[in-house]
Structures are given as structure tokens and as C-alpha cells.
């Protein structure tokens, strides 16, 4: 699954960058996040509860930040194990640029799932991922002080996912 999106965040770029690197912010903003601990400057462990279609599971995973260009971009990548629910892994290239009175955040994400998640939830992965991304940035936006959610201030994403059902001969 591949997904891209961009969000306008009403905060200076330096503040957005700092928040993107703050485990407390991330913990508060990631939907279903129960734990998130920095294990070094660039690595953290996380526990996230998610429900995708009929599969609900707690994912325990490790997350790493690489390709860091301060206040501009990083790649966040990780893998979560959800027990019998299977696993999910992926990464996102996140980039910040200055906009007109806001910071523009763009990302390109890739994710793969396996096990029961793939068997039962593959059709729902795209919509769920989009929903989770929107929820994250809505929380993130709120956290950075944005209050109005209408019009240009709100997040907008354009997931482009391959059709999982497309035939493979």
C-alpha cells in the first residue's frame, strides 16, 4: 500500500519539527497509542491498539527515525507485531516546507501487512490507514494550537493505494 498526503499546520516550521520529535506529542497524537518511549535520540518503542476491520490487536513495535535533516525532513520507519493478528511494517518520508502563514507537511508512506491482518483486513487497510493518518494530523494540528478545522486549515490527504484485489496471474 502506498499513500501520500499533505497537511497545512498553523504553526512555525521549527515548532512543527520539534513536535514531530517529541515522544509526548507523538504519544498523544497517534490514535490508539498506549506507550511510546524514546530508547535513543532516533529510536523508540511503541504499543498501539488498532482495529482494522474484524481484527483488533495491540501492536508492539520499534520505530526509527532516519535521513534526518533538521527542521526539514526525516524518514520514520518501523515494524509492529500484533501477535496472531499478524504484523504491519512500513515507513513514511515526512517533509516540512514554509507556507503562507503555515507549515506545509507532506508525506509519502508505504506499508505492508501480514498474517490475519492481510487475510481478513486487506480490503480495509487503505481506508483505515487514511483515517488514521487524518486522525493523527488532526490531533497534531490541535496540539499545536490550531483550533479551527474548517477550510484551508484542515488536513487533506490523497491516498493512492493499489487495488489489492487486482489479478495476479
Amino acid at each position: 500500500m502506498d499513500m501520500t498526503g499533505e497537511y497545512q499546520i498553523a504553526a512555525p516550521r521549527a515548532d512543527v519539527w520539534q513536535a514531530l520529535n517529541d515522544p509526548d506529542v507523538l504519544r498523544a497524537c497517534i490514535p490508539g497509542c498506549e506507550e511510546l518511549e524514546m530508547t535513543s535520540d532516533t529510536t523508540m518503542t511503541a504499543k498501539v491498539v488498532q482495529k482494522i476491520g474484524p481484527v483488533k490487536a495491540k501492536f508492539a513495535g520499534e520505530v526509527e527515525l532516519v535521513n534526518i535533516v533538521v527542521e526539514e525532513s526525516y524518514t520514520i520507519q518501523g515494524e509492529g507485531k500484533g501477535g496472531v493478528a499478524g504484523f504491519a511494517k512500513g515507513g513514511a518520508d515526512v517533509r516540512l516546507t514554509d507556507g503562507d502563514g503555515h507549515t506545509l507537511l507532506t508525506y509519502e508512506a508505504q506499508a505492508t501487512v501480514g498474517g490475519k491482518l492481510a487475510r481478513l483486513g486487506s480490503r480495509l487497510i487503505n481506508s483505515t490507514a487514511k483515517k488514521l493518518a487524518d486522525k493523527f494530523f488532526e490531533n497534531f494540528h490541535d496540539h499545536l494550537g490550531g483550533s479551527d478545522k474548517d477550510g484551508e486549515q484542515s488536513a487533506s490527504g490523497t491516498p493512492e493505494a493499489k487495488d489489492a484485489q487486482s489479478e495476479r496471474a
Partner: peptide, 9 residues
């Protein structure tokens, strides 16, 4: 990955 693992798919 088997992605037709139930009668949903």
C-alpha cells in the same frame, strides 16, 4: 500474503 482469507474476500 493470503489476502482472500475469509468470505468477505
Amino acid at each position: 500474503q493470503l489476502i482472500t482469507g475469509s468470505y468477505m474476500d
